[in-house]
């Protein structure tokens, strides 16, 4: 029998279980860079529930959450903590601004780290956000 399509690896499953039980916004990416889950708390950043959007391919992520640095410059996803964790296989942390579907720019601290399995294989990336309540989001500079 063929394997069921899309079976997630155990590290991702356990990370999702953790995220589901946290009040801290958390995103999960798989080993292809697809956003495969975000928890209820992260819905405040995205502006829509995961159940509505479902999995989001890497190239579509910019339509969901627009990132800019602390000075208001657009942030390439590759240079975001999640991008660094994904492409460079190392943890990263950054204060940045995130704009979701509701159009509100929020200042957040983002930490991302890669998930490696027992044989060193990469399973994905965990991306955790902390909203910075006392910081004012800068205006985004036009392209």
């Amino acid at each position: 029998m063929e394997a069921a399509a899309g079976q997630k690896s155990l590290p991702l499953i356990l990370a999702r279980e953790l995220a589901s039980n946290l009040a801290t916004p958390m995103f999960l990416m798989d080993d292809a860079g697809t956003l495969v889950f975000y928890n209820d708390a992260a819905e405040l950043l995205i502006g829509r529930p995961f159940a509505e959007l479902g999995e989001i391919a890497s190239e579509e992520f910019g339509q969901v959450l627009e990132l800019s640095d602390a000075d208001g410059n657009r942030l390439l996803r590759r240079n975001s903590p999640a991008g660094i964790a994904f492409f460079e296989h190392r943890p990263a942390h950054l204060r940045l601004c995130a704009t979701g579907y509701d159009g509100v720019r929020r200042v957040v601290e983002a930490t991302a780290y890669p998930l490696f399995g027992a044989e060193g294989e990469m399973h994905g990336v965990v991306n955790v956000f902390w909203q910075v309540d006392d910081a004012k989001a800068p205006e985004v500079e036009p392209d």
Binding site: A3, A4, A5, G6, Q7, K8, L10, I13, R16, E17, L18, S20, N21
Partner: peptide, 17 residues
């Protein structure tokens, strides 16, 4: 652990495959 299996998509259930 930590989830209600009834609500889980199969691909997110440990051992389903």
């Amino acid at each position: 652990l930590g989830v209600d299996l009834a609500d889980q998509p199969p691909s997110w259930i440990s051992g389903h495959d």
